[in-house]
Design a protein around this nucleic acid. Structure first.
Lengths: 121, 121
DNA sequence: ATCTTAGTTCAACGATCATTGAACATTAAG
DNA sequence: CTTAATGTTCAATGATCGTTGAACTAAGAT
């Protein structure tokens, strides 16, 4: 019984919800980072540059409830992955165009180097 | 001096704003209708099925300020057009994928027949 | 001038948003 | 067991959202 967090089924992902979820700078930045890291899962903590723990918890819930990300508990962490395939199935070409557009915007790219989990060397 | 309503320049159209503007059922429906009518301009009044005059005025302003539509006063009316080319230039493929996704959703399509301006036959 | 059409502005309202800080829960490590 | 790491929950807060109704403006039509 891993995965007790509610995620919408693929066919229940609704476009207005997805658009609203991405219509926030912090969350849009998060999915851009996740997309850049392709299929590697990331923990919430890796986004602390973008806000407080509480704020991130809130944004992660929004993205999860909209069906944009998958949240998988792993120990004390929550591993996040983009629901790429589900979104592509439901809204073909949409996610790619969004991510490409974000990447083409020079503004939020100072932190292009994604921070490591605590304890690098 | 037509066009005294403020529209963002193409290069100033921001993705989060566009996403937020489309992240509302009423407004998403509006742009889907506009897209279906391709380049023919539509008046605000043609959307009265979607809300009150006041509500529409509000939504039209949101879409205009986000850079999604062009609003051109014509007599007592406001003619609306999608800023297709500007959006395509700024966010390639984005609008098409959104519109295609809306059209693929059976829910908001009862009114597929777009209403005429007052005085059909 | 009067009336109609088409849309705007304004104040109000309840709802949701995004954030904060404090307290709590869960898992892991010493 | 104690401590640390990682997130969640809760209540509060100020801001923004989407809607309403009443009043208003601007442009045509009679």
């Amino acid at each position: 019984m891993t995965n007790y967090l509610p995620h919408p089924d693929t066919e229940d992902i609704a476009l207005p919800n997805v658009l609203a979820a991405l219509g926030d700078e912090t969350r849009l930045t998060m999915i851009a980072i996740l997309a850049r890291n392709s299929e590697k899962a990331m923990s919430c903590g890796q986004f602390l540059q973008l806000g407080s723990k509480t704020a991130l918890s809130y944004h992660v819930a929004k993205l999860r409830e909209a069906g944009v990300i998958q949240v998988r508990p792993e120990g004390t962490k929550r591993m996040l992955t983009l629901r790429r395939d589900d979104l592509e199935k439901r809204f073909p070409g949409f996610l790619d165009s969004v991510v490409a557009s974000v990447d083409a915007t020079p503004d939020p790219q100072q932190w292009t180097g994604v921070p490591e989990t605590t304890g690098g060397a």
